[in-house]
Design a protein around this nucleic acid. Sequence first.
DNA 1: GTCAGCAGTGTAACTGCGTTACAGGAGATG
DNA 2: CATCTCCTGTAACGCAGTTACACTGCTGAC
Lengths: 206, 206
Amino acid sequence: MSRTVLTREQVLQAADDLVRQHGPDALTMRGLAARLGTAVTSIYWHVGNRESLLDALVERAVEEIGAIQPAGRTPATRIVSVARRLRGELRARPHLIAMVHERGLTERVFLPAQRALVREAHTAGLRGARAAEAVRAVQFQVVGFVLVECARELAPAEPRERPRKTASARKDPALARALARPADPERLFTASMRALVKSLLAQGNA
Amino acid sequence: MSRTVLTREQVLQAADDLVRQHGPDALTMRGLAARLGTAVTSIYWHVGNRESLLDALVERAVEEIGAIQPAGRTPATRIVSVARRLRGELRARPHLIAMVHERGLTERVFLPAQRALVREAHTAGLRGARAAEAVRAVQFQVVGFVLVECARELAPAEPRERPRKTASARKDPALARALARPADPERLFTASMRALVKSLLAQGNA
DNA sequence: GTCAGCAGTGTAACTGCGTTACAGGAGATG
DNA sequence: CATCTCCTGTAACGCAGTTACACTGCTGAC
């Protein structure tokens, strides 16, 4: 009888759910089969093997992110807005980001935002290799930042280092206090992105 | 008889070698035991379990990196030099970096450079929370960048996307060409780090 | 009608992993 | 000699990915 035949799409959806809820490690072939009320071999028939399955999930996620529209008046604010939105999209899928990272598909994730960034860099007066460099700098910054951010969230058991009273700490207690506090990623991201973009675009007018 | 008793240090060294040569996944307890000509249980007796073993390796690497001395005349160049040297140290241990990332110990890696960065930010006129933000921005940038960089190296099988002829490509063929070429990470890192630092320090004088 | 062939499923196994229960051996101490 | 601690080896458990192989149900050809 085979109650309502199993489809590749169903397998992918179930795998996606599993990964989203419990992380990539929780995605076992047996577990997935059990969840779908079928046998392991069916999974293999539909998706090949675990590796291909994860690849498919990544592909799916990248497509989901899709194009990103800039917002704002000046090129700088528009670029920052693209960066922030891209970060938001990535942050919404922390486990998938880790997977993308492990399989070296980071370039792939960049693409949705690349065209928008290129356009903005161009209207800001950047040309050729210099424009390319600016675009790449922004992309690296976004993905790198999100990676660091996700890592500290997924493993938050960091043992708090006791702040040693160094010379600089005594000279600037406010700084020491600020460094002892956990960073506010949202703020930090926006601030450093603004700083980066500002300098990058300044080169266009020089 | 037990030929020259096994020591914890020997286990760590062998594990380190294995990870450096073939990556963290190649570090299996059985393989390690075989390499040391002993039995798995001895490994467990000396290091507890695989998790603790990896933790110990990370700790070792962080200590190896040690303090980082700035070089250059202006605070900006000195900060950039710290960033570059930190990147160099991290790049020399790509597998360890991945491990650090997975166990959320990124903060730990930051520490060697943090004091130097704080000092430079301070002499550049940054104070309190703003100085802390600058230091953190640089740290995030370095580690994020290295993470992205290592990911693309460890998995270089990225299928080359055929460059579509978009409107912007036709307008600026040099840019299109530059984006089609693989990025030069060294150059890109230095450039974006300079850009970031420049803006961050500019806030101190404003 | 029947029979080959294909799509899809299920059973049961293989290998390799981390881990551990348990039985010792070597050397110090009484 | 007995005993105790430190350390090592044997053999297993459970779980992972993967697969060989037999099977079912359906479709189309004859």
